[in-house]
Lab assay of single mutants.
Amino acid sequence: EQLARLKREFNENRYLTERRRQQLSSELGLNEAQIKIWFQNERA
């Protein structure tokens, strides 16, 4: 579920704002660094 949600977010926007990253962190139970790194890896 977390992965599917991250992929949906990535398809909508390849870059997250700090606020959006905080929201996802709270909703998915991941820390902000994990989300940031995931997005960086997807863009690579």
Rank of each mutant, 00 (worst) to 15 (best):
E1V: 07
Q2K: 09
Q2N: 08
Q2R: 08
L3S: 04
L3N: 05
L3K: 04
A4M: 11
A4S: 06
A4W: 03
R5T: 05
R5M: 06
R5S: 05
R5Y: 06
R5V: 09
L6K: 02
L6R: 03
L6S: 03
K7F: 07
R8I: 10
R8G: 04
E9R: 06
E9K: 05
N11Q: 14
N11F: 11
N11I: 11
E12R: 13
E12H: 11
E12L: 12
N13D: 07
N13L: 07
N13T: 04
R14Q: 13
R14S: 11
Y15D: 05
Y15A: 06
L16M: 05
L16C: 06
L16I: 10
T17S: 14
T17F: 03
E18S: 14
E18R: 15
E18P: 14
R20A: 08
R20C: 07
R20K: 11
Q22W: 08
Q22C: 11
Q22P: 02
Q22G: 04
Q23Y: 11
Q23K: 11
Q23E: 14
L24G: 00
L24I: 06
L24W: 02
L24K: 01
S25L: 09
S25N: 01
S26W: 14
E27A: 07
E27N: 03
E27R: 03
E27W: 06
L28E: 00
L28D: 00
L28W: 03
G29V: 02
G29D: 05
G29A: 04
L30E: 00
L30V: 06
N31A: 13
N31W: 07
N31V: 05
N31Q: 11
E32W: 09
E32M: 07
E32A: 08
E32L: 08
A33N: 13
A33Y: 13
A33M: 14
A33S: 12
Q34G: 01
Q34V: 14
Q34K: 06
Q34F: 15
Q34I: 15
I35Y: 01
I35A: 01
I35N: 02
I37P: 00
I37Y: 09
I37W: 14
W38M: 03
W38N: 00
W38I: 04
W38Q: 01
F39W: 15
Q40A: 12
Q40E: 15
Q40Y: 07
Q40P: 01
Q40T: 07
N41K: 12
N41L: 11
E42F: 13
E42S: 05
R43L: 14
R43V: 11
R43S: 09
A44T: 08
A44W: 11
A44F: 09
A44V: 09
